[in-house]
Simulated scan of single mutants.
Amino acid sequence: MSRDGYALVGDIGGTNARFALVRRGQAGLESVQVRPCGDYTDLTGAIGDYLHEVGVDAVTEACLAVASSDRGNRVQLTNNHLCFDRDDLRRRFQWRSLKIVNDFTAMALGVPQVDAARLVHVCGGPGDPGRPRLVMGPGTGLGVSGLVPTRQGWVPLRTEGGHVDFAPVDDTEIAILRLLTLRYGRVSVERILCGSGLLNLYQAHADIQGLPAPFKAPEQITEAALGHADALAEQTLQHFCGILGRVAGNASLTLGSAGGVYLCGGILPRILQFFLASPFQAGFEAKGRMTSVMVSTPVYVVTEPCTGLLGAAQALINPEV
């Protein structure tokens, strides 16, 4: 079956590839599917399998949100093995047009489309709906974007804010920085504020305290922390949330995001109750003379798993993208 009135949208992250169909000129998602990136050697296979499974021979156009900093014709994803050539992909599926956007640009565009029931208030407010919004979140990496309001709608900002320098604030964090510097040379906040970063933080705490570090995956650390089964894991996850609060607060001050801070990504929804009771708020608000600004800035966790797809659909019809 050919769906000439449909477009394909995709959100290709470090772990999963999400796909959906949208009717031309609209943004509602149909036939949403999630496919593990590790199941495929190339993106063509994932797209082909999706179209076959939903019974579609062809669509007319596509927009793919990808975790990549590449700006040329060949795109290599930042946090997994997938890569593709834009022109080859368009020709392979005979699309009239193919738009590629950064995954967190799409995440930002999707935030205004998320139902209010999928937003969990963390702290702050009431904010100013006419001001910019900050969109960020830890997952396979640390994505950072923003939305600037105009008379025509939202303009998304493409940034690499997850790669700013980690700034320690006490002796323990200075020791963590030294350990990670030996491993990486330069330590960005993404080296701590993502899945593999949580493991880095856990192992650094273990080294500093002279403790064993039996967990070898971030999922093991979060499971032990949430179950109060391991003091080091719990301490690490608390510290992770506190650092995220400081980094989010810094980015909010830089952007002037009085319109709100929206925390996306795969990690926070899975640890939501722990996160709400964590040092995040203290880290976010502790900005000296700017504390009153932070207290008035609302922060939300976005629990909608298809935010990036919603944003990719918006990117198809947004002339600023």
Rank of each mutant, 00 (worst) to 15 (best):
Y262L: 15
G256C: 11
V261A: 10
A282Q: 13
G245Q: 13
I271V: 15
R270K: 15
S257R: 13
H239P: 00
T236H: 07
I243H: 03
L237H: 04
I243F: 03
P279W: 02
R270S: 03
T236K: 02
A282S: 14
F274S: 00
G256I: 12
F275P: 01
C264R: 05
G242A: 01
G256E: 04
D230M: 13
Q273K: 08
G260F: 10
P269W: 09
P279D: 07
T236G: 03
L276M: 12
Q273D: 15
N250S: 14
A282V: 12
G249N: 09
S257K: 15
A258R: 15
L232V: 14
G227T: 12
P279R: 11
H228V: 04
R270V: 00
A251Q: 13
L276E: 08
A277Y: 09
L253N: 10
H239S: 08
N250F: 09
S278Y: 09
A229P: 00
L244N: 01
R246N: 04
D230P: 06
L244C: 10
A231L: 09
C264T: 15
H228R: 13
L263M: 10
F275N: 02
L263R: 03
D230Q: 10
V247H: 11
G265H: 06
A229N: 00
P279C: 09
G260W: 04
Q273N: 11
